[in-house]
Nucleic acid binder design. Sequence first.
DNA 1: TCTGGGGTCCTAGGACCC
DNA 2: TCTGGGGTCCTAGGACCC
Length: 349
Amino acid sequence: MTATAPRWVLHVDMDQFLVAVELLRRPELVGLPVIVGGRGDPTERAVVSTASYEAREHGVRSGMPLRVAARRSPGAVLLPVDRPVYEAASARVMQTLRDLPGAVVEVLGWDEAFVGVHTDDPEATAREVQGAVLAATDLWCSVGIGDTLVRAKTATDFGKPRGTFRLTRDTWLEVMGERPTTALWGVGPRISARLAGLGIHTVAELARAPEDVLVAELGPAGGGHVGRLGRGGGRAWPDDTPWVARAHGHETTYQRDLDPAEVPDALRALAEQVVLDLRREERAAMRVHLKVRVKPFFTFTKVRKLAVPTYDADVLSRTAHELYLALDDDRPVRLLGIRGEMEPPAGGY
DNA sequence: TCTGGGGTCCTAGGACCC
DNA sequence: TCTGGGGTCCTAGGACCC
């Protein structure tokens, strides 16, 4: 890679990451349907975090209730989520990427990152990245190649597993044009339905849509953003400035619905965890915006938010309880969450 | 016993100020 | 008795992603 060669964005995405990390310490499970999720107990309220390709052949998908997954793939091995192990593996992957000469790395999550490189042969560079990650971690990744972040990210799926794929301004519409708008990163069922109301069903139709029409429907920021998505546009170079968390929160789905009388103790436990996170990671000058999330039924969530100028768990949990009481809802609680949102520093992030 | 837990970013609309 | 417009801050909540 030389600085004078053209710029390319690589999207590095680990293959079945959580399962792959588990297989490193349980090689006897290679080739079997393996599901990582919750505490590995299909009778509990929990969902699939990652399924091996063998389990996916049985119709198991991430986000699916463990109970359903176990029914679809009766012989599958279920494993509990082991965050510290995945965090350590993720750190090794990201360090490997940062050690590549000239690479600009923007981390997206545990198992994926954008890597900006200068190269005349992006496929060869992508293979080098795969080799370096494999050598350092024994883990495989797929690499999407693009002239923007969105195109690189979108390309990765076509390269999975263990492959590479390139999407550029010239090939974007030919590959993506006839696909539904939900195929785009950032367009979910709601946005897609609103676009359909404008007669926009495919990526190509979105790419052609006038900006003022999109802005009228989705707002000033949303309209421009979604229009750019349709053309595969947007940022063309990763941003490697260190990450500053905007929020920390904890939420719990209880195995047994909580009686309202049990809520204060539960809120206190959550508040203490949030305060620990804030003290550890945030500057004291920031203000906390407390957000309480309550889910009495699985389709229904209520939120109350309030600025609270303190890191004191007593005050937070008391305030959270007041917010909960203000919901004026005495139904059993399935999910409870509180979240500290940081006041952005002057001038924004 | 149908649906996790960690986040990010955006918008509508009301309050308030000048 | 009637009524502005811009800007900012705040809360409630929507949508999406990994």
